[in-house]
Nucleic acid binder design. Structure first.
Length: 262
DNA sequence: ATGACTGAGCATCTCAGA
């Protein structure tokens, strides 16, 4: 089973990139972040033509997540449980497929909106941890994939790419990320490629891509049962070298699951 | 000396991204 995540930085600007990638890689499930549009503007037909059903949690101009899948699935949540009912930011989608719970997230960046913006990021991480704990307690096999906007350690960003005190590396951010992982989850990319610089993002500015000065901020965290079946985890660097690319690349996870294993 | 980021939106600038 192939599961992937990709922050596309506008689905309308990246429609052909995503279509081509689906045709070439054929993931079972692909989570998208920063689609930057409401559901009616999402190019559903393009992906249906490739054999993928789309479900969209949209928002005008900012944020927005979606899932594309060529296997049957049901949407179980369109917002992160535990956030205030009036929260209007489109950052979470949760589905069930093949006996698994799969979650796509766009975790708040936290650098805008001053202290309130950063507090929102931390509150979001607290709610995500609570959701993961709930699923673990129920012994539900699950994975949480997406743009976490967290560099877990200093090995997860190229020197000079982030200012000190950036919300992606602040101690409170990292403490919450560790608290999530230490519930018993496995960082797929980190587990298979320890100590390697496998960037998932390169800024558009300052020649970050030609200099290979990137960040590792797109992650896939797996519950224990799914971690047992992990066989591959790969950021698709080639996508960053295409014309008019997203600043993030797809991250692909492969699981050796028997059919109806769960 | 060269080149300087990208996308969306009540838009020719501002906000957000990371």
């Amino acid at each position: 089973m192939k599961i992937a995540t990709w922050n596309v930085n506008s689905i309308r600007q990246r429609e052909s990139h995503v279509r081509d990638w689906l045709d070439r890689v054929r993931p079972d499930v692909l989570f998208l972040q920063e689609i930057k549009c409401e559901a009616p503007a999402f190019p559903v037909a393009t992906f249906e033509a490739a054999g993928y059903r789309a479900e969209i949690v949209g928002q005008k101009a900012y944020n927005g997540v979606a899932v594309l899948a060529c296997v049957p699935f049901t949407v179980t949540h369109r917002a992160l449980p535990g956030l205030p009912a009036d929260d209007s930011q489109a950052r979470y989608i949760e589905i069930q497929t093949a006996g698994l719970t799969l979650i796509g997230i766009y975790l708040p960046n936290g650098n805008s909106g001053a202290e309130a913006g950063y507090a929102y990021k931390l509150a979001w991480m607290d709610a995500l941890r609570a959701r993961a704990a709930e699923l673990l307690a129920a012994e539900t096999p699950f994975a949480i994939l997406g743009d976490y906007n967290v560099c877990p350690t200093d090995a997860d960003f190229a020197p000079g790419t982030l200012p000190a005190g950036d919300a992606l590396v602040r101690p409170e951010t990292r403490a919450r990320y560790r608290s999530l992982v230490w519930l018993g989850l496995t960082d797929a990319l980190g587990a298979l490629h320890p100590g390697e610089k496998r960037w998932t993002f390169w800024d558009y500015q300052a020649g970050a891509w030609p200099r290979d000065q990137g960040l590792r901020i797109d992650h896939a965290l797996l519950s224990p049962a799914l971690a047992e079946s992990l066989v591959a985890a790969t950021p698709d660097r080639d996508e960053r070298g295409r014309t008019q690319p997203s600043d993030h690349v797809p991250v692909l996870i492969e699981l050796a699951l028997e059919r109806d294993a769960f």
